[in-house]
Measured scan of single mutants.
Amino acid sequence: EPLWIRPDAPSRCTWQLGRPASESPHHHTAPAKSPKILPDILKKIGDTPMVRINKIGKKFGLKCELLAKCEFFNAGGSVKDRISLRMIEDAERDGTLKPGDTIIEPTSGNTGIGLALAAAVRGYRCIIVMPEKMSSEKVDVLRALGAEIVRTPTNARFDSPESHVGVAWRLKNEIPNSHILDQYRNASNPLAHYDTTADEILQQCDGKLDMLVASVGTGGTITGIARKLKEKCPGCRIIGVDPEGSILAEPEELNQTEQTTYEVEGIGYDFIPTVLDRTVVDKWFKSNDEEAFTFARMLIAQEGLLCGGSAGSTVAVAVKAAQELQEGQRCVVILPDSVRNYMTKFLSDRWMLQKGFLKEEDLTEKKPWWWHLRVQELGLSAPLTVLPTITCGHTIEILREKGFDQAPVVDEAGVILGMVTLGNMLSSLLAGKVQPSDQVGKVIYKQFKQIRLTDTLGRLSHILEMDHFALVVHEQIQYHSTGKSSQRQMVFGVVTAIDLLNFVAAQERDQK
């Protein structure tokens, strides 16, 4: 057995438009009618409502009807409940999964919650491996369901041993009777949507819809739904939504950006999952974080739909894509998950301010006199920076000697690579993860907040409520011999709460 199987392995699926269902090699399930009293909570997966979006479509000038398939009504709160249950049931049916076995899954959280929910009911041990950027709410729900959680670096490539995929496979090879159901490759993922989600949409719309818009992560949702719609409703256009920084969209030119990270969760990847059939997507749109969270908040405030950030991405694209539809036509959007997962993220004004998705003037509360002053007023001194090749031991000596707790790590040209902190280095040394002679590049981390000289002290204040420091950066445009230009970030300084307090105190003292 291989040590790991690539999540982007070539698909062996034989589905073709027009091929009889009787030739399918898979076990198919028909939607079942729910009894009045459910035998367990797993029976509350599927049969989610279709809700008309009344205000947002009109606000953006849509002539067509805009409908939302509300997947956050599933038992675990997301569309991923469907595939989690289906993968477990299919693994039980073919004898792969037996009582007492362990389920391991690399996930952005929602599939993990679905699997942990099913594992709690069915009696399996469950280990979820997820990147650090995923919300604390997801972690809390997983723990409450009895799952064990392993976190991995957000910026690790999918084929790196440190990625959530790599760590999951390492655990599988170490733990007896453990299984990775593997949402990236498992046919049960798109089949769950082909058999149930798509049929529900067709039934709820009486077979009449002209466009379907869905955000894409593993691709199982859009693949399964689109294949069924292509068979039953061939005139329906399928629109895929991919965040900026991901590479799922086609044509490839759409993916060209210097951005590699994004805040919206559960969609987009740096590889093409095996289950994603991009041939059934008629057109791709890219979405960005700001519009995703703005539209998610709009869905909550104006439509009462308590959905997550990827739902915002989907609707932001839908109001663009559906401009081509006329009166009497219908566009369906998939709202994948609930706001429950993001209470401390985009639902929080403070978080939105820190990330730059909300401006101070958007909030009406009274601010102190210094709130709208610029960061450049602080008069920061030149920063202490270190090269990635310097040793951890030497870096600790320098920081202690100069009285700093942290320093930016830059390359020879001064471009920011990340940050090192005294606390992080000492804990890594004590844990045996690094040696004093190791290069400081081994303990770089990139989960820090950046701020510009033109940003306000109010925004800085919000950042420092949650973080010990902020890195002050400025952009530099560099022209190359080819005539092309590129933008790079340079370090201007490091600012802490002490710097802000000293500035405010000094100004008030001078005024007296």
Rank of each mutant, 00 (worst) to 15 (best):
I239S: 04
V241K: 01
D242C: 01
P243W: 03
E244R: 01
G245S: 08
E252A: 11
N255W: 06
N255E: 07
Q256K: 15
Q256G: 11
E258T: 15
Y262P: 06
V264P: 05
E265Y: 05
I267P: 08
I267S: 06
G268I: 04
G268M: 01
Y269P: 04
Y269E: 06
T274G: 06
V275W: 01
L276R: 03
V280R: 13
V281Q: 06
D282R: 14
K283W: 10
W284T: 01
F285C: 07
S287N: 08
N288S: 09
N288G: 15
D289I: 01
D289M: 05
E290F: 06
E290V: 10
E290K: 13
E291I: 08
F295G: 07
F295Q: 14
F295P: 13
I300W: 03
A301C: 15
E303H: 11
L306Q: 07
L306V: 04
C307Y: 01
T314C: 05
K320G: 08
A322N: 06
E324N: 15
Q326F: 07
Q329V: 05
Q329C: 11
R330N: 06
C331Q: 01
C331R: 05
C331V: 03
V332T: 05
V333Q: 03
L335A: 06
D337V: 01
R340D: 04
Y342L: 05
F346C: 01
L347T: 01
W351S: 13
L353A: 10
Q354N: 15
G356P: 01
L358T: 05
E360L: 10
E360N: 12
E361A: 01
E361I: 08
E365P: 15
W369R: 01
R374A: 15
R374Y: 03
Q376S: 08
Q376F: 07
L387D: 09
P388G: 13
P388R: 15
I390S: 09
H394S: 07
I396W: 07
E397T: 15
L399K: 01
L399A: 14
K402R: 13
V410S: 08
D411F: 08
D411M: 15
A413N: 14
G414R: 13
G414N: 01
I416D: 10
L417V: 12
G418E: 04
V420F: 11
L426A: 15
L430R: 13
A431T: 14
G432N: 13
G432I: 12
K433V: 10
V434C: 11
V434P: 11
P436G: 11
S437I: 10
V440I: 12
K442D: 13
V443L: 07
V443T: 15
Y445F: 09
Y445G: 01
K446D: 07
Q447T: 13
K449C: 14
I451V: 14
R452Q: 01
T454L: 07
T456M: 13
L457E: 01
L457H: 01
R459T: 13
S461Y: 05
S461G: 13
H462V: 13
H462W: 14
E465S: 11
M466N: 01
D467N: 13
A470D: 01
I477F: 11
Q478M: 09
Y479F: 11
S481H: 14
S481W: 06
S481C: 12
G483D: 14
G483A: 15
Q487D: 14
Q487A: 11
R488I: 15
Q489Y: 10
Q489G: 04
V491G: 11
V491E: 09
F492N: 15
F492Q: 15
V494H: 01
I498L: 10
L500H: 15
L500S: 06
L500Y: 08
F503W: 15
R509N: 05
R509I: 07
D510K: 14
K512I: 01
